[in-house]
Design a protein around this nucleic acid. Structure first.
Length: 648
DNA sequence: GTCACAGTAAACAAAA
DNA sequence: GTTTTGTTTACTGTGA
């Protein structure tokens, strides 16, 4: 009865669950080429930059480094492309790979640079010692200190960079890696490969100048020795995943890490893993624990060097803790601002302004942060965040459970503020593998209306989905089928034969005709909710916050820009019960790629009633692109449409 | 319980 | 021949 063979392959991934099963979509795959070029291009630049500083004086080098750090970080960061663009182009695994590559390059650059520094310092020290000049020695010590501080600074920048990326979802952590932000943050902030590398190249960065001077001889020889070790193909283990856990992380003097490490390997030593000594910068191979203990006692006994290294580690930990404190503080502030209690597991379930009769509120229970890829409790931007309680009933996020087919006609019809909701939670949906609480139809419509031409090919619609929603970067077979199904099923989507092929447009009239959800409550209430003074006001803070974060869509035409013609483009008041206006005079009606006559001839109407065909004649379906921005017309639509026809 | 809607799965055909 | 696109049907879950 059922066809198994062909469909089974497609079915292997779907089911809509948020499993880790990665189904790389076609869009992802196709963008792989761009990924490679971007990554390699960046890498080359970094490398040449590092090579170019071979013959500088220490002072110049210091200066160079001061300039080089931000440059490197800039290269590391996807700032040439915005993170959004990066994500549009790259699939998550590609992003990870790119980041790792960049980090590896950066570390390599650091090592090379620092090695040169050390060699130069060492040479100078030797010559000066021979000349019997004690004074410059101190100066050199200071220089070394300065370098080390630079290094730390650089590391900090890198940490911040990683944090930023992580916040933007570019770097994600394995969900099982950490159960909470306190554990997640430090691990994410510092790539496990970072610290050993940092260790390798330095004696004791950041320690007091006297110490540095005092240990100079020892440190220099010591670091020279280690320098040679990493002059060979560095065991940077570049493409090591961020997730490779604590093995590479120094655990000295960090109670948190100690505990975790102990938990991890009860019978082993926290400084021993994978047959290697995990003492920072050591990596000596030890066959067994006994050998390692011996090695530990001989090589890492209590001496100046080990002490200095411990000091550095302390600093590293302190830095991380400071960073963590900062981030925690920020999180608290954000949550406080969002009226959330950090300790509450499901902070969104308590609406601020519950509207009577809004049954959907009671269903909003899921903390979207739970499913945020990086495991952080992201005080969202999320769909589940304060927006939710403020959302008009019936438009509420029916489900963010990410899994099941639970998104009911949320913001769908009903002039839902999908555009604003989407705008506000754009980043969230883009990064979080959370199912958007919109129907396919509303999403398709949104995709189409966002374009200047208000028409999209099927493939462009696909791309929009994957671009806008992390959720749709998997299970492609399922949702693409659903998209096609919706396009075909709903009369509001009109297929138009274009020169370049078929494009899909939205017939707003038909869209609005779709049966609105039955709502309890007075029409007045409904009306108010839609035009939503309170909604808008209460969301002001969000708008501001998003604007502050330079949220792209806020500035994009047709989204939240009230001044844009398209966003104000009303669903014509006359379009109810009367043919849609040709709107020839309305230049803002986004002239389609088709010339009007062409269009009128080429519109293929799917078995539509004659009246609808008439409606569609001369121009592309008139959009009501921004429901949130054009409340009144839609109110009117509702009022006038409700008694009207009901069509499926 | 019924109805409408939405999502999913699948079959099928036509076009690229 | 394969993939993409488009249409259609059937079924299920959910909310009113």
């Amino acid at each position: 009865m059922m066809v198994e063979s062909a469909s089974e392959t497609i079915r292997s991934a779907p089911s809509g669950q948020n499993g880790v099963g990665s189904l790389s979509g076609q869009a992802d795959g196709s963008s792989g080429g761009a990924t490679g070029t971007t990554a390699s291009g960046t890498g080359r630049e970094v490398t040449t930059g590092a090579d170019s500083n071979g013959e500088m004086s220490p002072a110049e080098l210091l200066h160079f480094q001061q300039q080089q750090v931000p440059v490197s970080v800039a290269m590391m960061s996807p700032q040439m492309l915005t993170p959004q663009q990066m994500q549009q182009i790259l699939s998550p695994p590609q992003l990870q790979a790119l980041l790792q590559q960049q980090q590896a390059l950066m570390l390599q650059q650091l090592q090379e640079y620092y090695k040169k520094q050390q060699e130069q310092l060492h040479l100078q020290l030797l010559t000066q010692q021979q000349a019997g000049k004690p004074q410059p020695k101190e100066a050199l010590g200071n220089k070394q200190l300065a370098f080390q501080q630079q290094l730390l600074q650089m590391q900090q920048l890198q940490q911040q960079h990683l944090l930023n990326l992580q916040r933007q979802g570019l770097v994600s952590l394995q969900p099982n890696q950490a159960s909470g932000p306190l554990q997640t943050l430090p691990q994410a902030a510092v790539c496990p490969t970072d610290l050993p590398q940092l260790w390798k190249g330095e004696g004791a960065p950041g320690q007091p100048a006297e110490d540095s001077v005092k240990q100079e001889g020892l440190d220099l020889t010591g670091t020279a020795a280690t320098a040679t070790s990493f002059a060979a193909p560095p065991k940077v283990s570049p493409p090591l995943s961020h997730h490779t856990l604590p093995n590479g992380q120094p655990t000295v003097l960090t109670s948190r890490r100690d505990s975790s490490s102990h938990e991890e390997t009860p019978g082993s030593h926290p400084l021993y893993g994978h047959g290697e000594c995990k003492w920072p910068g050591c990596e000596t191979l030890c066959e067994d624990l006994g050998q390692f203990i011996k090695h530990l006692n001989t090589e890492h006994a209590l001496d100046d060097r080990s002490t200095a290294q411990c000091r550095v580690q302390m600093q590293v930990v302190q830095q991380l803790e400071i960073q963590l404190a900062k981030e925690s503080e920020r999180l608290q502030a954000m949550m406080a601002h969002l009226h959330m209690r950090p300790s509450e597991p499901k902070p969104f379930s308590q609406p601020l302004n519950p509207v009577p009769g809004s049954s959907s509120f009671s269903k909003v229970t899921v903390s979207a942060a739970d499913s945020f890829p990086d495991g952080l409790v992201h005080p969202p931007t999320s769909a589940a965040a304060p927006v939710t309680p403020l959302r008009p009933p019936g438009l509420g996020s029916a489900s963010l459970h990410g899994g099941g087919p639970a998104r009911r006609r949320s913001s769908d019809k009903f002039c839902s503020p999908i555009s604003s909701e989407l705008a506000q939670n754009h980043e969230f949906y883009k990064n979080a593998d959370v199912r958007p609480p919109f129907t396919y139809a509303s999403l398709i419509r949104q995709a189409i209306l966002e374009t200047p031409d208000r028409q999209l090919t099927l493939n462009e619609i696909y791309n929009w989905f994957t671009r806008m929603f992390a959720y749709f970067r998997r299970n492609t077979a399922t949702w693409k089928n659903a998209v096609r199904h919706n396009l075909s099923l709903h009369k509001c989507f009109v297929r138009v034969e274009n020169v370049k092929g078929a494009v899909w447009t939205v017939d707003e009239r038909e869209y609005q005709k779709r049966r609105p959800p039955k709502m309890t409550g007075s029409p007045t209430l409904v009306k108010n909710m839609i035009s939503g003074l309170s909604y808008g006001a209460l969301n002001a803070s969000y708008q501001a916050a998003l604007a502050e974060s330079s949220f792209p869509l806020l500035n994009s035409p047709g989204m939240l820009n009230p001044g844009s013609a398209s966003s104000l483009l009303p669903l014509s008041h006359d379009d109810v019960g009367a043919p849609v206006e040709p709107l020839p005079s309305n230049g803002s009606s986004s002239p389609p790629r088709l010339s009007p006559p062409q269009y009128s001839h080429q519109v293929q109407v799917k078995e539509e009633p004659a009246e609808a065909e008439e409606d569609r004649q001369p121009g592309p379906p008139l959009g009501a692109p921004n429901p949130s921005a054009s409340g009144p017309p839609e109110d009117r639509d509702l009022e006038e449409e409700l008694p009207g026809e009901e069509l499926s």
